[in-house]
Nucleic acid binder design. Structure first.
Lengths: 110, 110
DNA sequence: TCGGAATATTCCTGTTGACGTATACTCCTA
DNA sequence: TAGGAGTATACGTCAACAGGAATATTCCGA
């Protein structure tokens, strides 16, 4: 994945929130939607964007698509992602998303 | 500086190269131009963009403008920049810029 | 104070991307 | 096999931004 492409992925608030959650664990689209409380089409398009850039990949399980940070990323890209995970842990919006994810009742996809 | 704004700054190849150089030391516009070998107007506009976002600041010395990474950045932003400095050290284009900078004959502004 | 070097801004054009609405696709299950 | 849940795509619109050409600004030294 290109360095510049990574930063394009991170340069939109919604995508940044998605990445923040996926850095913890792979998630189903419906879980992401619920945690971020954004319209389905918006989520789907941002996820599609990051998939096209090579940042995410999918695993289909029954009726659900689980997305995760691609395991094929270079050291350099992983370093930037790690900076996000650690450095932005105190960001109010991002932390709130994580909480909402933890406190959510078991989603249908589980 | 906003997290998202930082990544917008880093999501253009020219800006990424500029930041890569400024992470080493403050530089005059003419030095940046010479190292990157890009037209003056292009450099100026990208530098202006990053200044507006709060990533860079200027120090005027005689006839020259020296730019540097702003000293007022948050821990989170600094963490991402550090990831660039270390993680992307092996990137061919970025390393080449650094070499060109070192091997350059003393610029007029020094 | 005038010319020139260093740098920024304005104008124009083409491209990319963000968002919403509507619609399509893909499976699972009844 | 029909309906519905989960998810993606197409289309239209608007804003942001990249690049080049031309021009403006600022400040130095002669």
């Amino acid at each position: 994945m290109e360095i510049v492409s990574l930063h394009k992925c991170l340069s939109d608030p919604t995508r940044l929130r998605i990445v923040n959650l996926l850095l913890r664990e792979p998630l189903c689209v419906c879980e992401l939607q619920e945690a971020l409380d954004e319209p389905q089409v918006k989520m789907s398009k941002h996820i599609g964007y990051m998939k096209r850039q090579g940042l995410l990949d999918v695993q289909r399980k029954a009726n659900w698509n689980f997305y995760r940070i691609s395991p094929k990323l270079s050291e350099a890209v992983l370093a930037s992602l790690e900076a996000i995970r650690t450095g932005y842990a105190k960001d109010p919006k991002l932390s709130e998303d994580l909480k909402k994810l933890e406190h959510s009742p078991g989603a249908a996809c589980r």
